[in-house]
């Protein structure tokens, strides 16, 4: 005889024993795998007290690295945001052949190792690269200097804003823009007054992610920067230099700055998602990726 279907019957895995075993294992693993690495950074940085931490943070080479990292982010985030808006506008407001190809090419940096990206840039702007002879003849220095750091950072973060905008702008369609145009609005007015306000949270979130990744990029930048101390060390490279020189507290102090940026980004994500839900707007499907 079949059991009557009860609306409140337990679903799979809801038994008290199963539930507590799974929950305990997952929470314990999370503590070890996610929380401990985050905690150890701050524990090591403050191991010898706050004054030592502040002193370690105020080293001239660390401060210089902070400055270079800020400069890189200040250039890369607006550029990749502008690219994201332009590409998302082209792809979602118009129909043309090769739209999917364009998106696939834009997503390539997510699949390519930062090391490969760094090597590839070396073969464009390095002495033995595509433009090497030309750049040398005209005494233009790109490789092992700040421009290369910026270019490599642009590569690894190119898709960040675009991938947040495209699913949302697809879901929102073109009706509002078409209405605005039929009422006589210019293209830039439509973008400024209709499209961007509709996607402002996704735009902010994409820019925040882009910023976190630019500030933290290590592999690609370590190849193209030449890692010249006090000149082309960004903050992640500075962490490695300090660690190699056994300045543990200084390395962890510098790491707290980047960990702080990461935590700030996650808090921003949380707040943005809450604001989206509160406004009841179409929430963009989020995909994993880096």
């Amino acid at each position: 005889m079949a059991r009557p279907v009860n609306r409140h019957r337990l679903r799979v895995g809801d038994g008290a024993v199963t539930r507590s075993v799974i929950l305990t294992l997952v929470l314990a693993t999370t503590g070890l795998a996610l929380i401990a690495p985050l905690a150890v950074i701050f524990a090591e940085a403050f191991a010898r007290g706050v004054p030592t931490y502040l002193e370690a943070l105020a080293r001239p080479d660390t401060l210089h690295a902070v400055g270079l990292t800020l400069l890189t982010a200040l250039i890369c985030v607006p550029l990749n945001t502008a690219f994201g808006i332009a590409a998302a506008w082209a792809v979602t407001k118009f129909s043309f052949r090769g739209r999917n190809l364009l998106l696939a090419v834009a997503e390539l940096p997510f699949s390519i190792s930062p090391i490969v990206a760094g090597v590839a840039y070396l073969f464009v702007y390095g002495a033995q690269g595509l433009f090497g002879p030309f750049l040398q003849a005209h005494d233009i220095k790109i490789m092992f200097a700040v421009p290369a750091i910026i270019l490599a950072s642009l590569f690894v973060t190119a898709p960040f804003v675009l991938r947040e905008l495209v699913p949302l702008m697809m879901a929102q369609g073109r009706d509002e823009e078409e209405a605005a145009v039929s009422l006589g609005a210019s293209g830039f007015d439509v973008l400024r007054l209709v499209t961007l306000p509709n996607v402002k949270f996704a735009l902010l979130y994409g820019a925040a992610l882009c910023n976190a990744r630019v500030m933290g990029e290590f592999g690609a930048v370590s190849i193209v920067s030449g890692n010249i101390r006090g000149q082309t060390s960004t903050l992640p490279l500075q962490i490695e230099l300090l660690y190699q020189d056994s300045h543990a507290v200084a390395a962890f102090a510098a790491a707290t700055v980047l960990a702080g940026v990461a935590l700030f980004t996650l808090v921003a994500k949380y707040l943005i998602e809450r604001a989206e839900r509160a406004r009841g707007e179409i929430v963009a499907p989020r995909r994993p990726g880096h």
């Binding site: 999370t30 996610l34 929380i35 690495p37 985050l38 150890v40 950074i41 090591e44 992610l209 976190a212 500030m215 933290g216 990029e217 290590f218 592999g219 992640p236 490279l237 962490i239 490695e240 660690y243 390395a251 962890f252 790491a255 980047l258 960990a259 990461a262 935590l263 980004t265 996650l266 994500k269 994993p288 880096h290």
Partner: peptide, 19 residues
């Protein structure tokens, strides 16, 4: 917390795991 590894720079993660 799940997104921490994406937001945290890899060099910082490497430093933390080594410690």
């Amino acid at each position: 917390m799940v997104d921490v590894p994406f937001a945290l720079p890899t060099a910082v993660a490497g430093l933390a795991l080594t410690a």
